[in-house]
Structures are given as C-alpha cells and as structure tokens.
C-alpha cells in the first residue's frame, strides 16, 4: 500500500509559502493577550465556569474547542531547573540536527530581536537558580502530517494553500474522529457553551450573541480568514513581546534555531526547540516552539506520532482479520454442513 502521510514538500501545493508560528516561550510574559485576541477575533465562547483551575495563573486549562491559544504557567524549584538544564545538555550531546550556533548570524532573521551590541561575551547562566515561573502560549501545531486532517471523513478539515490545517464549519458534521486523531489534544468538538444565548444578535451592546458552531469540531485556523487578506493572525498581532512570531515557516524555523543557539550560548542549556524537525513523528509542525524544559512539563507530548503513519499496516492487519472472518465463516459452513 502506498504511503498515506503527506511529505513536507507536498504541502506547498500552491504558490504560497507555508506559514507558521514561532512561539518563543523565553520571552513570554504570560499576559494572555493571545488568548483574548484569538477569542475576540474568532468569536469563540468563553470557556470557563469562572472558577480557579488550581494551576497557578492558568484558568483556561488547555487548548480546546473554545480556547485556541492557551498560556501555560509552571512554577519550578531549583531542582527542577537543574533537571531541565540537564535534559537540555543531554539533547545537545545526542548530536541532533542543527546543533550549535549558526556559523554566521543572518541579519535578516529574528524580527524583534536586535542583534546584541552589549552582551557580547557573557556566557554565565542567568541567575534565577532558586525558582522560576515558566509561561508558554500553546496553539494548534498545524502539523505536516496532521492526524485530524487525515482521519476526517467529510473533508471538513483541509490543508489550505498556506500549508495550515483548517476546519470548515459548514461541512463538519461533528463525528469527533479528528479529536481522537490529534496527538496533541488540540481539536475538540464544541459543546453547547456555558451561557445560553439570549438572542441571535451579534456585536450589539447589552446583548449576548449566540454561540456559533456548536457540535462542530473547532481549533485554531491560524486565522485563515485573515491570512487570505494578508493579515497577521490575531494572537501574533497582539503579542506584546513578540513571543509569538508569525511568518513563512522556513523563516520561523531559522529564527527559532538562531534564538535557541543564542540562549545556549548564554548558558541556558535548558533551551530547546519543539516541532522544528521534519523527521519527527508528525513531519514537523507549522507552529514551532522554543521551550525551557521537557515538553510534557508544558502539557505537550514528548514523542507524538501521527496515527496515519501506521495506517497501512493497520489496514493490512484488518485485511487479514477480515479474511480470517471469511475463512471462519466458510469453515463454519463446511463444518456445520457436514452432518
């Protein structure tokens, strides 16, 4: 059976370059502007019973049907920081692709990051050894091999001309297969919402608008509607510190590599990239992250794998099983008819 997963180069099936995010969690200030800007643009219902979620300053919990940008807050002790540095050093020593600082720093890269003119040779690790508070804005990964897209039976999920993965609200029938198909737990079917709509009126002061797309799978569209008009996605536009960067995926990966090298040079061995490797289980992600600890600390899977990669084998096994069933029936008739 032919390979069913998409190759990275299949994605550029249009003249547009593939777009993506680079989320640099080392400069995230946890303000949640991305969450609000996203909800505001996409008119997502709020996602809360208005109770503390018992997780530091995080009260939206995780990505889901209504929250398409989610800021994680992790409080860590010195011991955990040391472990993170340790695991970062281990990564470096593995000899992974793209190790070490780029030979020469391309001056064009890294929007918002001005080349240092002062901190030339400071390689001592920053001193916050006793405690740290990690913040990280998570989002749909827009995988090269997107589990949700592959398993969608209706074609509601599709690969856009920008290489992103988007749900068509008017097509989805809410079967929920994509929810199970996502190795990152991103996509979710929208339930009835928490506040019952008073009226159908939208954008009217003093009126609650109806919740849209109930029963339909929902996730980050990377603001497809804005993208077709050459606008920046709402979250990236709002982000005060450019922790969320948006642009051509290739450029994002380059920026990410440069930034991680910079941090490692400064002694932050805990810095690492997530999703920048096209050979990983999902073929690389459209949304690349710079993390300061192991992915699971942020609620990300450590070794995600698109289920479609194993689908040919599963079909094969199912075929054998089906054949077995046919054979068993035949045997049954032969055995049962013998008397």
């Amino acid at each position: 059976m032919r390979q069913l997963t998409e190759a990275p180069d299949h994605i550029a099936h249009h003249e547009h370059p593939r777009k993506g995010f680079f989320t640099d969690t080392s400069i995230c200030i946890g303000c949640k502007a991305c969450e609000v800007a996203c909800k505001e643009w996409n008119r997502n219902p709020h996602d809360s019973a208005f109770e503390l979620l018992e997780s530091s300053y995080d009260n939206t919990g995780s990505l889901g049907a209504d929250t398409w940008r989610h800021v994680a807050f992790v409080e860590q002790s010195g011991q955990q920081i040391e472990q993170a540095r340790e695991s970062g050093r281990a990564l470096v020593s593995l000899g992974m692709p793209g190790i070490g600082p780029p030979a020469s720093r391309p001056s064009s890269a890294a929007p918002g990051i001005v080349p240092s003119d002062t901190a030339s040779s400071d390689t001592t690790p920053p001193d916050t050894p006793e405690f740290r508070w990690l913040m990280s804005s998570d989002v749909c990964k827009h995988c090269t091999n997107a589990g949700c897209l592959d398993v969608c039976p209706t074609g509601a999920l599709f690969r856009t001309e920008f290489g992103t993965v988007v749900v068509q609200d008017d097509v989805c029938n809410g079967c929920g297969t994509c929810v199970a198909g996502c190795p990152f737990g991103v996509i979710e079917r929208r339930s009835d919402g928490i506040v019952a709509p008073k009226t159908e009126r939208d954008f009217t002061p003093g009126e609650q608008a109806a919740t849209r797309n109930v029963g339909v799978a929902q996730k980050c569209t990377l603001c497809y509607d804005r993208m077709v008009d050459d606008q920046t996605p709402a979250c990236a536009q709002a982000c005060p510190t450019t922790s969320i960067k948006y642009g051509d995926r290739e450029e994002m990966v380059a920026t990410a590599r440069q930034r991680v090298a910079e941090l490692q040079t400064q002694g932050m061995s805990e810095a690492r990239l997530y999703g920048a490797n096209d050979f990983d289980g999902v073929g690389g992600t459209g949304s690349v992250f710079l993390l300061l600890d192991e992915p699971e600390v942020y609620g990300l899977p450590p070794d995600p794998r698109v289920p479609t990669a194993d689908l040919p084998q599963m079909f094969k096994r199912a075929g054998i099983a089906a054949a077995g069933m046919l054979a068993a029936t035949a045997v049954a008739f032969v055995a049962g008819g013998r008397r």
Binding site: A156, G174, C175, G176, V216
Partner: peptide, 21 residues
C-alpha cells in the same frame, strides 16, 4: 454526531486516510 442533520456529508468525499470515511 455533533450535527446529525449533516450525516450525509460522510459521503461527501472518499478519504483513504480516514477509516471513518
């Protein structure tokens, strides 16, 4: 289904990658 009235969309396309399809 989340939107049972759209069950016919199951036959909108043939997706080899989708067991559901």
């Amino acid at each position: 289904l989340g939107r049972p009235e759209r069950f016919l969309n199951m036959l909108r396309t043939i997706k080899l990658t989708s067991p559901m399809s």
